[in-house]
Computed example of a mutant assay.
Amino acid sequence: MNLSYTFNEPSRLTLALTHPSAALEPGVVEHNQRLEFLGDAVVQLVVTQWLYEMRPGWKEGDLTRARQRLVNARTLARFADVWGLGEALRVGKGERTAGAPLTVNVRADAFEAVMGAVYLDGGLAAAHAVLVPLLEPVLEAIATLGDPRSALLEWCQAGKHPTPAYVVLGSEGPAHALVFSVTVEVAGQVYGPATGRSKRDAMAEAARVALAGLGLPVAGALE
Protein backbone atom coordinates (compact mmCIF):
# COMPACT_ATOMS: atom_id res chain seq x y z
CA MET A 1 0.00 0.00 0.00
CA ASN A 2 1.06 3.56 -0.71
CA LEU A 3 -0.89 5.29 2.06
CA SER A 4 1.29 8.02 3.59
CA TYR A 5 -0.10 7.62 7.09
CA THR A 6 0.94 5.42 10.01
CA PHE A 7 -1.94 4.28 12.17
CA ASN A 8 -1.78 4.60 15.94
CA GLU A 9 -4.24 1.70 16.04
CA PRO A 10 -3.50 -0.60 13.07
CA SER A 11 -6.70 -2.53 13.74
CA ARG A 12 -8.62 0.39 12.24
CA LEU A 13 -6.86 -0.07 8.92
CA THR A 14 -7.45 -3.82 9.06
CA LEU A 15 -11.17 -3.22 9.52
CA ALA A 16 -11.25 -0.63 6.73
CA LEU A 17 -9.73 -3.20 4.38
CA THR A 18 -12.32 -5.88 5.18
CA HIS A 19 -15.06 -5.95 2.55
CA PRO A 20 -18.55 -7.15 3.62
CA SER A 21 -18.13 -10.25 1.46
CA ALA A 22 -15.18 -11.28 3.64
CA ALA A 23 -17.48 -11.37 6.67
CA LEU A 24 -18.89 -14.58 5.22
CA GLU A 25 -15.50 -16.25 5.59
CA PRO A 26 -14.62 -18.23 8.75
CA GLY A 27 -13.21 -16.13 11.58
CA VAL A 28 -14.34 -12.74 10.21
CA VAL A 29 -16.98 -10.97 12.30
CA GLU A 30 -16.69 -7.30 11.27
CA HIS A 31 -16.49 -5.48 7.95
CA ASN A 32 -15.93 -1.93 6.72
CA GLN A 33 -19.43 -0.62 5.95
CA ARG A 34 -19.65 1.54 9.07
CA LEU A 35 -16.26 3.06 8.30
CA GLU A 36 -17.38 3.60 4.71
CA PHE A 37 -20.41 5.51 6.02
CA LEU A 38 -18.15 7.73 8.13
CA GLY A 39 -15.55 8.11 5.39
CA ASP A 40 -18.14 9.31 2.90
CA ALA A 41 -18.85 12.31 5.15
CA VAL A 42 -15.14 12.90 5.82
CA VAL A 43 -14.31 12.96 2.10
CA GLN A 44 -17.20 15.34 1.42
CA LEU A 45 -16.04 17.71 4.17
CA VAL A 46 -12.35 17.69 3.23
CA VAL A 47 -13.08 18.22 -0.47
CA THR A 48 -15.63 20.96 0.25
CA GLN A 49 -13.31 22.89 2.55
CA TRP A 50 -10.36 22.47 0.20
CA LEU A 51 -12.28 23.72 -2.84
CA TYR A 52 -13.65 26.65 -0.83
CA GLU A 53 -10.14 27.70 0.19
CA MET A 54 -8.41 26.98 -3.13
CA ARG A 55 -10.95 28.68 -5.39
CA PRO A 56 -12.15 31.86 -3.62
CA GLY A 57 -13.45 33.28 -6.90
CA TRP A 58 -15.71 30.36 -7.76
CA LYS A 59 -19.46 30.64 -7.30
CA GLU A 60 -21.46 28.03 -5.41
CA GLY A 61 -22.49 26.24 -8.60
CA ASP A 62 -18.87 25.95 -9.77
CA LEU A 63 -17.81 24.56 -6.40
CA THR A 64 -20.68 22.08 -6.38
CA ARG A 65 -19.89 20.78 -9.87
CA ALA A 66 -16.20 20.40 -9.04
CA ARG A 67 -17.04 18.51 -5.85
CA GLN A 68 -19.35 16.19 -7.78
CA ARG A 69 -16.51 15.39 -10.16
CA LEU A 70 -14.10 14.73 -7.28
CA VAL A 71 -16.47 12.80 -5.03
CA ASN A 72 -17.83 10.12 -7.35
CA ALA A 73 -17.16 6.42 -7.60
CA ARG A 74 -14.84 6.59 -10.62
CA THR A 75 -12.59 9.24 -9.09
CA LEU A 76 -12.51 7.62 -5.65
CA ALA A 77 -11.73 4.25 -7.25
CA ARG A 78 -8.82 5.89 -9.05
CA PHE A 79 -7.59 7.28 -5.73
CA ALA A 80 -7.91 3.79 -4.24
CA ASP A 81 -5.72 2.49 -7.06
CA VAL A 82 -3.05 5.09 -6.26
CA TRP A 83 -2.96 3.75 -2.71
CA GLY A 84 -3.04 0.12 -3.85
CA LEU A 85 -6.21 -0.65 -1.91
CA GLY A 86 -7.54 -3.14 -4.45
CA GLU A 87 -4.67 -5.51 -3.79
CA ALA A 88 -4.83 -5.00 -0.02
CA LEU A 89 -8.61 -5.34 0.36
CA ARG A 90 -9.81 -8.54 2.00
CA VAL A 91 -12.81 -9.86 0.08
CA GLY A 92 -14.81 -13.06 -0.13
CA LYS A 93 -13.85 -15.77 -2.59
CA GLY A 94 -16.54 -14.82 -5.09
CA GLU A 95 -15.66 -11.11 -5.23
CA ARG A 96 -12.46 -11.38 -7.27
CA THR A 97 -12.27 -12.54 -10.86
CA ALA A 98 -8.92 -13.97 -11.90
CA GLY A 99 -6.84 -11.29 -13.60
CA ALA A 100 -9.52 -8.59 -13.26
CA PRO A 101 -9.54 -5.62 -10.86
CA LEU A 102 -12.26 -5.21 -8.27
CA THR A 103 -15.25 -3.20 -9.44
CA VAL A 104 -15.25 0.59 -9.35
CA ASN A 105 -17.79 0.69 -6.52
CA VAL A 106 -15.90 -1.82 -4.37
CA ARG A 107 -12.67 0.17 -4.74
CA ALA A 108 -14.44 3.49 -4.10
CA ASP A 109 -16.11 2.08 -0.99
CA ALA A 110 -12.74 0.84 0.27
CA PHE A 111 -11.26 4.29 -0.21
CA GLU A 112 -14.04 5.86 1.85
CA ALA A 113 -13.61 3.23 4.56
CA VAL A 114 -9.89 3.96 4.81
CA MET A 115 -10.62 7.69 4.97
CA GLY A 116 -13.02 6.99 7.84
CA ALA A 117 -10.31 4.99 9.60
CA VAL A 118 -7.73 7.76 9.12
CA TYR A 119 -10.18 10.30 10.55
CA LEU A 120 -10.89 8.18 13.63
CA ASP A 121 -7.20 7.53 14.17
CA GLY A 122 -5.73 10.96 13.49
CA GLY A 123 -8.57 13.45 13.20
CA LEU A 124 -9.55 15.82 10.42
CA ALA A 125 -6.01 17.13 9.96
CA ALA A 126 -4.77 13.63 9.14
CA ALA A 127 -7.65 13.05 6.73
CA HIS A 128 -6.87 16.36 5.03
CA ALA A 129 -3.16 15.51 4.79
CA VAL A 130 -3.70 12.19 2.99
CA LEU A 131 -6.52 13.30 0.67
CA VAL A 132 -5.39 16.71 -0.59
CA PRO A 133 -2.31 15.39 -2.47
CA LEU A 134 -4.68 13.22 -4.50
CA LEU A 135 -6.98 16.15 -5.28
CA GLU A 136 -4.36 18.65 -6.43
CA PRO A 137 -3.35 16.94 -9.71
CA VAL A 138 -6.93 16.80 -10.98
CA LEU A 139 -8.26 20.20 -9.92
CA GLU A 140 -7.17 22.05 -13.05
CA ALA A 141 -8.55 19.32 -15.28
CA ILE A 142 -11.88 19.43 -13.48
CA ALA A 143 -12.04 23.21 -13.84
CA THR A 144 -12.02 22.89 -17.62
CA LEU A 145 -14.34 19.92 -18.01
CA GLY A 146 -17.61 20.22 -19.86
CA ASP A 147 -20.94 18.89 -18.65
CA PRO A 148 -21.67 15.65 -20.58
CA ARG A 149 -25.44 16.12 -20.38
CA SER A 150 -25.15 19.63 -21.83
CA ALA A 151 -22.81 18.40 -24.56
CA LEU A 152 -25.24 15.64 -25.50
CA LEU A 153 -28.20 18.04 -25.51
CA GLU A 154 -26.31 20.47 -27.74
CA TRP A 155 -25.54 17.67 -30.21
CA CYS A 156 -29.22 16.70 -30.32
CA GLN A 157 -30.32 20.28 -30.86
CA ALA A 158 -27.75 20.83 -33.61
CA GLY A 159 -28.96 17.73 -35.43
CA LYS A 160 -32.65 18.46 -34.75
CA HIS A 161 -33.00 15.24 -32.76
CA PRO A 162 -35.41 14.86 -29.83
CA THR A 163 -34.16 15.81 -26.38
CA PRO A 164 -32.20 12.95 -24.74
CA ALA A 165 -34.57 10.76 -22.71
CA TYR A 166 -33.12 9.49 -19.42
CA VAL A 167 -34.70 6.52 -17.66
CA VAL A 168 -33.83 5.61 -14.06
CA LEU A 169 -33.92 1.81 -13.98
CA GLY A 170 -33.58 1.56 -10.22
CA SER A 171 -31.07 1.52 -7.40
CA GLU A 172 -29.28 -1.02 -5.25
CA GLY A 173 -27.09 -1.12 -2.18
CA PRO A 174 -27.46 0.07 1.43
CA ALA A 175 -29.39 3.28 2.09
CA HIS A 176 -26.24 5.33 2.76
CA ALA A 177 -24.50 4.14 -0.42
CA LEU A 178 -27.16 3.64 -3.09
CA VAL A 179 -26.01 3.08 -6.66
CA PHE A 180 -28.45 4.24 -9.35
CA SER A 181 -28.73 2.78 -12.84
CA VAL A 182 -29.77 4.94 -15.81
CA THR A 183 -30.14 4.62 -19.58
CA VAL A 184 -30.49 7.42 -22.12
CA GLU A 185 -32.17 7.32 -25.53
CA VAL A 186 -30.58 9.50 -28.20
CA ALA A 187 -31.70 9.63 -31.83
CA GLY A 188 -33.55 6.33 -31.44
CA GLN A 189 -30.63 4.51 -29.81
CA VAL A 190 -30.55 3.50 -26.13
CA TYR A 191 -27.19 3.80 -24.35
CA GLY A 192 -26.29 2.29 -21.00
CA PRO A 193 -27.13 1.31 -18.42
CA ALA A 194 -24.69 3.52 -16.54
CA THR A 195 -24.34 3.79 -12.78
CA GLY A 196 -23.67 6.51 -10.24
CA ARG A 197 -24.05 7.29 -6.57
CA SER A 198 -26.84 9.73 -7.31
CA LYS A 199 -29.36 10.01 -10.13
CA ARG A 200 -27.44 13.06 -11.38
CA ASP A 201 -24.14 11.16 -11.49
CA ALA A 202 -25.77 8.17 -13.21
CA MET A 203 -27.36 10.44 -15.83
CA ALA A 204 -24.02 12.14 -16.45
CA GLU A 205 -22.36 8.76 -16.86
CA ALA A 206 -25.09 7.66 -19.28
CA ALA A 207 -24.48 10.84 -21.27
CA ARG A 208 -20.76 10.01 -21.42
CA VAL A 209 -21.59 6.53 -22.72
CA ALA A 210 -23.84 8.05 -25.38
CA LEU A 211 -21.21 10.61 -26.42
CA ALA A 212 -18.62 7.86 -26.76
CA GLY A 213 -21.06 5.72 -28.73
CA LEU A 214 -21.71 8.62 -31.09
CA GLY A 215 -17.99 9.15 -31.61
CA LEU A 216 -18.06 12.53 -29.87
CA PRO A 217 -15.61 13.96 -27.30
CA VAL A 218 -16.52 12.58 -23.89
CA ALA A 219 -17.13 15.65 -21.74
CA GLY A 220 -16.44 15.22 -18.07
CA ALA A 221 -13.91 12.40 -18.43
CA LEU A 222 -11.01 12.57 -16.00
CA GLU A 223 -8.70 10.20 -17.85
Rank of each mutant, 00 (worst) to 15 (best):
R149P: 00
S150H: 04
L152N: 01
L152W: 01
E154V: 02
W155F: 12
C156A: 04
A158Q: 09
G159D: 11
G159L: 14
P162S: 01
P162Y: 07
P164S: 11
A165Y: 04
Y166P: 00
Y166D: 07
V167W: 12
V167Q: 15
L169E: 10
G170S: 06
S171P: 00
S171L: 07
P174Y: 12
P174H: 11
A175P: 00
A175K: 06
A177Q: 10
A177R: 10
L178N: 05
L178D: 12
V179D: 03
F180S: 05
F180M: 09
S181C: 02
T183R: 10
T183V: 11
V184E: 02
V184C: 03
E185H: 14
V186P: 00
A187C: 01
A187D: 13
G188K: 09
G188D: 12
G188P: 09
Q189G: 09
Q189F: 15
P193C: 04
A194K: 02
T195S: 10
T195H: 14
R197M: 06
R197P: 03
S198V: 13
R200F: 08
D201G: 15
A202N: 02
M203A: 08
A204G: 13
E205V: 04
A207L: 11
V209P: 00
V209Q: 08
V209W: 08
A210S: 03
A210K: 01
A212D: 13
G213H: 14
G213M: 14
L214K: 03
P217E: 13
V218Y: 13
A219K: 13
A221Q: 13
L222M: 05
